[in-house]
């Protein structure tokens, strides 16, 4: 069974006819040539397929494209602008936050989503008092990034990259950097108190 699905992918509106069995990940990679998100496990267990869906990080392998008709999808390729990497991408480069690079587009999207969640005050399993404002230390970063596996084991530098990007965004709330524009629309619309 087929359906026409409209997706806004990295800022461009695309209409694609898919079999209902097509996941969002396969629609992006196989039908729309958006190959930044990778297929690692195809079962939600690795995070390589992470994209920002209506501003929130999710695993593109565990949702059907038809279920996302009308959605806004940002992949790692849609972050940043014309030769100017997004601050999270810049931090991964500066800190050598990868080796083979297969997990990296997912790590980057996950980090962008995660930083928005932390900025909105969301707690994590590493937060001592879940009712209090979390402080994004290394233990918090590791816990919040645990949905992204790296088979090369670049974790130490990934944590360093995310730490640097977090510090950047904390000191840069004016957000004049055009490279951040994609994510600034993408705040999690959750119930967290913004303090």
């Amino acid at each position: 069974m087929e359906a026409d699905v409209t997706l806004r992918v990295d800022g461009t509106t695309r209409v694609v006819r898919v079999d209902t069995r097509t996941t969002l990940l396969d629609a992006l990679r196989e039908k729309l040539d958006a190959t930044a998100p990778k297929k690692g496990c195809d079962h939600g267990q690795c995070g390589a397929c992470t994209v920002l869906l209506n501003g929130r990080r999710v695993n593109a392998c565990l949702t059907f494209a038809v279920a996302q008709d009308g959605a806004e999808v940002v992949t790692a390729a849609g972050l940043g602008a014309d030769g100017a990497p997004h601050r999270v991408q810049r931090a991964f480069l500066d800190n050598d936050g990868f080796q083979c690079g297969y997990c990296t587009p997912g790590q980057v999207c996950s980090a962008v989503g995660m930083l928005e969640e932390a900025a909105a005050g969301w707690p994590s399993a590493a937060t001592g008092d879940v009712a209090a404002e979390p402080v994004l230390d290394d233990a918090e970063i590791r816990e919040r990034m645990s949905g992204n596996l790296c088979r090369c084991g670049a974790y130490v530098n990934i944590v360093a990259a995310v730490r640097e990007a977090a510090a950047d965004s904390a000191g840069n709330t004016g957000n004049t950097d055009s490279a951040d524009s994609v994510t600034s629309e993408a705040a999690p619309a959750g119930g967290a108190e913004v303090r």
């Binding site: 995070g47 994590s124 959750g190 119930g191 967290a192």
Partner: peptide, 27 residues
């Protein structure tokens, strides 16, 4: 992340946060 849950039912916040990953919990 809901304030009512974090404040009054921390066990529920903790249980949710200990499950799956940030990406999966968003879905």
């Amino acid at each position: 992340a809901h304030p009512l849950v974090r404040g009054r039912y921390p066990a529920l916040s903790r249980a949710l946060l200990s499950g799956a990953s940030g990406q999966l919990r968003n879905a």
